[in-house]
Amino acid sequence: MKILVTGASGFIGGRFARFALEQGFEVRVNGRRAEGVQHLISRGADFVQGDLADAEWVQHLCEGVEVVVHCAGAVGVWGDYAHFHHGNVTLTEHVVDGCLKQKVRRLVHLSSPSIYFDGRAHVGVREDQLPRRFSDHYGRTKFLAEQRVFAAQQAGLEVLALRPRFVTGAGDTSIFPRLIEMQCKGRLAIIGNGLNKVDFTSVHNLNAALLSALKVEGAALGKPYNISNGEPVPLWDVVNYVLRRLGLPAVNQHLPFGLAYAAATVNESICRLLPGKPQPSLFRLGVAVMARDFSLDISRAREYLDYQPQASLWDALDEFCAWWQAQTADQA
């Protein structure tokens, strides 16, 4: 099977592309520069240089592949709506159109459980439990992108969407690096009582789920799937585990939720008034994420994808820490 992995220069796309090569698949990757995927090219990946913003080029990119795993997109919590719409909706539309015109059989879309988040605690969220309103541009545009993907079923494209929660392992640049930086600057504090439990996903488990999504048939198609390790853990225990493994002091300082939320509101307001609207150091959404329970019901993935998370979170954290220390040593 020949597959295309978009966003392979990023953490999740890159890890899956490497995994797919190890499984014996022919893998094509894209990017603006070969440097970002050189480790995949050296392992045998076919690299096609270009920009997903170019709709005609995307059709060329999709030529001759059987399945597309779409991992590219805009991430984060700061920026205007146009930025997130372009990165998550417009680029996905180009990929969908490329799949249809090049007769690609299946599109596996990497989505996000940020779709569900409304600032409140949620335990065992199911795929159909959507909020009345989206809390940020990222969640809203990821949902819109999903809708574009599922609409393509009517034209004969096989589609699935995966919503993995807090993916970590070697190469993770989105979860712990920011927390590590804040702790090194003395700015990190436990928000609320510190007992909130959340889901994480080992990148190895996500790779297994994506592999299954390449192969399943019948009733498994046309659905979104929650993906996690299936065992919510106290968030701040995880943060402190990583800090200790890296030889950094644990977070002991507590900050009441109301005070942290108010400070984030002020911080955001000031940044919006400054030239260039710089990213604030504290977000309201981030405060809520770090203080609330949030876990997913993964029973649908267990039933239809035969998803059985095998890799432990703690092994994934150890893998991240070893990678982070190696990166830090190289930069020293």
Rank of each mutant, 00 (worst) to 15 (best):
A145G: 13
F257M: 08
S202H: 10
G124K: 03
L282M: 11
Q154F: 02
A74T: 10
E127H: 12
Y304F: 14
C99E: 00
H83N: 14
G171S: 09
A55N: 10
M1D: 12
N207S: 04
F25E: 05
L160A: 14
R244H: 12
Q38T: 13
A17S: 14
H254Q: 15
V65P: 00
F47L: 10
F294Q: 12
D46Y: 11
Q154P: 07
V65I: 03
P232S: 03
V123D: 12
R28L: 07
A220R: 06
V238F: 11
A145Y: 04
R163P: 05
T168E: 13
G169M: 03
C99V: 07
L144S: 10
G171Q: 04
A326G: 06
L40V: 00
F176M: 11
N252A: 09
R33M: 05
Y81D: 04
H94E: 05
R18I: 06
G98I: 11
R133S: 15
A263Q: 15
D80H: 13
A121P: 11
V104P: 00
A151P: 00
S228W: 07
S112K: 01
E146R: 04
H85G: 03
R163C: 07
K277A: 13
G139N: 09
R140G: 01
D80M: 06
D199N: 10
V96I: 10
G230V: 08
P249L: 12
R28N: 01
G73W: 01
L211I: 08
L91T: 12
S212Y: 02
A288E: 09
V216R: 04
A213W: 09
E93H: 05
I115E: 01
E35K: 15
S295W: 06
G31W: 02
R187D: 08
K223S: 06
Y261G: 12
S295E: 05
R245Q: 10
H137T: 08
A260L: 06
K197G: 11
S9K: 07
N88D: 01
D199A: 02
S228N: 12
L188T: 07
N229V: 07
N30K: 04
A332R: 08
L91P: 05
L248C: 01
P280R: 03
G44T: 07
L210P: 01
R106S: 06
V65K: 00
V149L: 03
H70R: 03
L211H: 02
T173M: 07
L273T: 01
G44M: 01
P113W: 01
A121S: 15
Y116G: 08
R43K: 15
A208R: 13
K197L: 01
G186H: 14
A262Q: 10
V58Q: 00
G76C: 08
V67K: 06
A170D: 08
